[in-house]
């Protein structure tokens, strides 16, 4: 029998209190305990990037963190980006307009990688964009439309300011 421990984790500005086994991965906590299935699980060893979330504002792999380690921390998932379906985040809107996805499996992880990236680097070159995307595997697109979407997002986000 494995012991469970209480945790309090803020996800997308909402506070959740749950009991977790120490071995429960944060990715599984988000999906199975909270029903936030926007965070995708691909490789479960830190290579594919599909499970990328923001941990206290920094992009990290949720499959390489135990849920218990997020106790007291702030998590943002892809569900936290848009107010509602008519008010997408500029990065989401750009992916829509530039057709930056095909099957969409990698998209949540890519979006969560890009949020801090575009904050730190509002005018990225194509090389920098491709480098930033290197930690997120996409099996469909060949990345061209994703790169286009990131360029569009950086323009949109500048226009907002």
């Amino acid at each position: 029998m494995t012991q469970s421990f209480p945790v309090t984790i803020t996800v997308n500005e909402k506070i959740y209190r749950r009991e977790v086994e120490p071995r429960l991965l944060l990715s599984d906590f988000l999906r199975h305990e909270l029903g936030l299935t926007g965070t995708h699980v691909g490789c479960e060893h830190g290579v594919c990037g599909a499970c990328t979330i923001l941990f206290d504002g920094e992009s990290m792999r949720s499959c390489l963190i135990f849920a218990i380690q997020a106790d007291g921390h702030n998590i943002t998932t892809v569900e936290g980006l848009a107010k509602d379906k008519d008010n997408l985040h500029p990065v989401q809107q750009s992916f829509w307009e530039a057709h930056g996805l095909q099957c969409g499996f990698c998209t949540p992880g890519i979006l969560m990688t890009l949020i801090p990236f575009l904050k730190q680097n509002p005018n990225p070159t194509e090389d920098e964009i491709r480098h930033a995307l290197s930690g997120n595997l996409c099996r469909c697109t060949g990345y061209q439309h994703i790169v286009d979407a990131v360029k569009l997002a950086s323009e949109k986000m500048k226009a907002v300011k």
């Binding site: 990037g49 792999r61 990236f117 930690g135």
Partner: peptide, 9 residues
């Protein structure tokens, strides 16, 4: 070293 997502942790 790997990717920013890894270096953050």
């Amino acid at each position: 070293i790997a990717h920013p997502q890894i270096r953050n942790r």
